[in-house]
């Protein structure tokens, strides 16, 4: 390992807690290199989703350091973290979080319509169609969400996450609502992107049967996250 290259994700003595409530998270140290496919496992309520939100800059750390792709998230304000998110993060949610009133194509292109920093060009549209083609939902682009199966929905959601070509892909239980056949397909797609784009994947999962494809397992059992009584 070369010391000259800092890890893609670097966390040191990170603490987080919500203004109200009992939840408390402390990660003494965590480093994930670029191009890693990392699975985050741990008990419910152990803070896996919070880690994802911290990495995305959605919630700020209370103390400690967190750097992602060179950005010191612990030192950035709300607007800067949002800009960081737009530029760096692709999100895949357990419940797909597609908008029912948009067609699949419009859902995929949605990040471009709600972020001024992104420019919706014909090339972007082409790319979106291309992604859908890869995902096998090219014929569903004009349809609304409720016409799609669960698996198709998650593929559409993945297209949306990948359309901006993010260097970091964050997935929160991406296979949680899928049947076994779809689970491995979805993971294959994510892995393929990471491999081809040289991106980094951090995926929260409960499903220990899927861990074999990951390069690295981050187990929350290892962190100090006492349920403060």
């Amino acid at each position: 390992m070369t010391d000259a290259q800092p890890p893609f994700i670097a966390i040191e003595q990170l603490t987080f807690q919500y203004p109200e409530g009992d939840f408390y998270l402390h990660i003494p140290e965590l480093g994930i290199d670029a191009g890693t496919k990392a699975a985050v496992i741990g008990a419910s309520g152990s803070g896996k989703t919070t880690l994802i939100n911290l990495l995305a800059g959605i919630v700020p750390a209370v103390s400690g350091q967190i750097r992602v792709h060179g950005a010191p998230l612990d030192q950035l304000g709300d607007a800067e973290r949002r800009r960081f998110r737009i530029a760096n993060i692709g999100f895949v949610f357990q419940d797909f979080a597609l908008l029912d009133y948009l067609t699949i194509l419009d859902n995929i292109l949605h990040p471009y319509r709600i972020n001024r920093a992104l420019n919706l060009t014909p090339q972007v549209r082409e790319h979106a169609v291309h992604l859908a083609d890869i995902m096998g939902i090219a014929d569903k682009l004009k349809r609304h969400v409720h016409h799609l199966s669960q698996g198709e929905k998650q593929r559409a959601a993945i297209c949306r996450a990948l359309v901006t070509r993010p260097p970091l892909l964050l997935a929160d239980e991406p296979t949680g609502n899928l049947d076994p056949a779809n689970k491995s397909h979805i993971l294959q797609h994510l892995f393929q992107y990471v491999d081809e784009a040289g991106a980094t994947l951090v995926a929260v999962t409960h499903d220990h049967g899927l861990l074999s494809g990951f390069d690295r397992i981050v187990d929350f059992q290892a962190f100090d996250c006492p349920q403060r009584a």
Partner: peptide, 19 residues
């Protein structure tokens, strides 16, 4: 939940109001 999703996708409060 839709608003939360949009926020996660990078949508600003102002843009949300605009929508």
């Amino acid at each position: 939940s839709e608003i939360e999703t949009m926020y996660k996708l990078g949508c600003s409060r102002l843009k949300m109001a605009e929508l």
